[in-house]
Design a protein around this nucleic acid. Structure first.
Lengths: 353, 353
DNA sequence: CTTAGCAGTCATACCCAAGGAGTGCCAAAC
DNA sequence: GTTTGGCACTCCTTGGGTATGACTGCTAAG
């Protein structure tokens, strides 16, 4: 790859048109097609010269000598960053998104799962969602419920709803009053706290003060750990079968590699969570990664649009769309943003205040 | 299709061998292959004659004149019902299944989801599970939890764990005591009842007796409805990408049709729920449906193994494996049965008594 | 009833030539 | 200097024709 001189206006327009045409047709685009379909005011020979220079600059690639050109990662990158016309959501899409959230669940896990279904349906690609970390939710309530002398249930409620629930089998009998006393103590001393600020030591202290047994203390501690869900992040993906429709994935080997990748919760999480980790989380702006920018070789023919969502001023999660590099970037960015906004609004609405 | 005479011993053996060979190789099997690989004690010409008769009987099919034979639906059916040697789970598989359930979740939805992952992994096919209907669970506890003057949470616990939880926003202020009184009344009068036996009228009566408001009565009623989950059945499926490995699905059109079918919760549910509806639910025995027996045209090249599972003497759900007709029936039946048994045991273990 | 032999069928693989899409380059025109 | 028409060249794709080989079904002999 030589140096990348600034593109003059005509080169930029030709590059944009090549990308646009290729996104729509999935066929390498040649100089004659370009001259005929878009009136550039110059002949195909001129376009050929320009395309040759764009190829030398690393923006375009020729699959073989006698074929048209296809955008390279750098070509797509330039298109996305500087050339493509931004898109707004249509009224129709906006309404559809809003309607779907209107009847959406209040339960966090269900919500993100439904969101991926919506987004994969609208985008025609694979949609992924990461649930917001529960660390930043506010503690609302804990209730130890007496079921029988040896069994109880513990429920922890945060501002996002039920964060943990578990059944506990005691080694020794407990009385309903013991549970009520402990519940009350915890509630009065933890009310309004952010989950991540509740330490195990504090829990122990409260349990000790209200005369709870060691067994009860352990139960409380582990239920809180579960409520913060530090181990397994909420992750949902759907719409993988959409990828079958893309001509670039008609090669079964590629497709299989991609699906195996997506199947692994861990790798999928890492892929999308980059967005969470990034220091400057572009304030709600969608972010595009193209081909090799993604890292894993399996995804070298894919692109991913990610967009963070938030509700209130905390709890940030990520939505993502994974598809072929030849994706309608502007539209998918608009869709992802719109969905992220509606998702945030929905979570805000159902938040427990 | 002519009449189906009883198969003599040699025809039966040849049919069994053809099915076996085809299942292993995915190639139409010819008379010479058969004579060479399995010592039938007769020449290929004799086998040819027998195969011609098996084809006339509708057990075998020739893809084209100069190809070997492939089993028909009826051929597979006969193989499964009468010819194939039954298989036991290997110690290794048994252990693996048990280990996975040992560390499985206690939450019903998670359990069936994890079960499909396990079963698709072991079987190399698509696995499906339907959660048991919640109607037959025993009511354990209801708790109305005071969060603030205008918000409460209701949790309904059945013998299978938390069956419903919801946040309620009241139109008028409520006091913690009101909620406690109503919770106690419901618990004392409903304790031990089966969920489906709790009628809306009874709930109304109890609410009225304990002086609950109309608003509270409605909340209780709708939470119970949700707990019985009459609307949306718990359904999980995973391992669709396994189907990519099967040579019969390398035709993208077929594959897409199948995946679209599987994607639809409703159709998938209907497919598997046949097993629940059937009058004589073969007492835990796996049940095989082959090709057109399944009904939908999209699945005419697929087979499904279903097996009911139960815990205690109630609550029946279904596990299923969907794959190409050319599947190792005996092994998959053993796997499905073993997994169903372990699943039942696990649900039994985590049941609240 | 079994079997060897053989003719016949048909999918598949292969080669080769024609077709076509598209390029790069050059020389002339602007 | 840029643009353009022309043209040779490359190389993928397509289609036809042929050879190959894996089968079968049939027949006649064992």
């Amino acid at each position: 790859m030589i140096d990348k001189p600034e593109l003059d206006k005509r080169k930029a327009f030709i590059l944009a048109t090549v990308v646009y045409e290729y996104i729509n047709t999935a066929e390498p685009v040649g100089s004659v097609t370009l001259a005929q379909k878009y009136n550039l005011g110059v002949s195909s020979a001129t376009i050929r010269n320009e395309m040759a220079e764009l190829e030398a600059g690393g923006y375009l690639v020729q699959p073989h000598t006698s074929a048209g050109r296809v955008p390279s990662d750098a070509g797509y990158r330039t298109y996305v960053d500087r050339l493509m016309p931004p898109e707004q959501l249509t009224k129709d899409d906006t309404r559809r998104i809003r309607d779907r959230f209107r009847e959406a669940s209040r339960e966090l896990g269900d919500v993100i799962e439904q969101t991926t279904r919506l987004l994969s349906g609208l985008s025609g690609n694979l949609a992924i969602a990461i649930a917001p970390s529960r660390d930043t939710h506010a503690f609302k309530h804990i209730q130890l419920i007496w079921l029988s002398a040896r069994t109880s249930m513990v429920v922890v409620v945060t501002s996002a709803g039920v964060a943990a629930q578990r059944v506990i089998e005691w080694q020794t009998d407990v009385a309903p009053d013991d549970l009520t006393r402990l519940s009350n103590a915890l509630n009065s001393r933890l009310g309004g706290r952010i989950m991540q600020d509740v330490t195990a030591n504090q829990l122990d202290a409260i349990c000790a003060d209200s005369g709870a047994s060691a067994e009860m203390r352990d139960a409380v501690r582990s239920t809180f750990a579960q409520a913060r869900q530090t181990d397994e992040p909420g992750l949902a993906a759907s719409g993988a079968q959409n990828l079958l429709d893309q001509p670039e994935f008609h090669d079964l080997r590629k497709l299989r590699a991609i699906l195996r990748f997506v199947e692994e919760q861990r790798t999928l999480y890492d892929l999308v969570a980059d967005e969470l980790a990034s220091d400057a989380p572009h304030k709600g702006q969608p972010h595009v990664r193209i081909g090799h920018e993604l890292g894993p070789d399996e995804l070298s023919e894919c692109s991913v649009v990610t967009v963070p969502y938030s509700f209130g001023d905390r709890g940030v999660g990520v939505l993502a769309i994974l598809g072929p590099r030849r994706m309608p970037y502007a539209r998918l960015m608009a869709l992802a943003s719109g969905t992220a906004r509606s998702l945030g609004d929905h979570l805000n609405d159902v938040e427990i205040r």
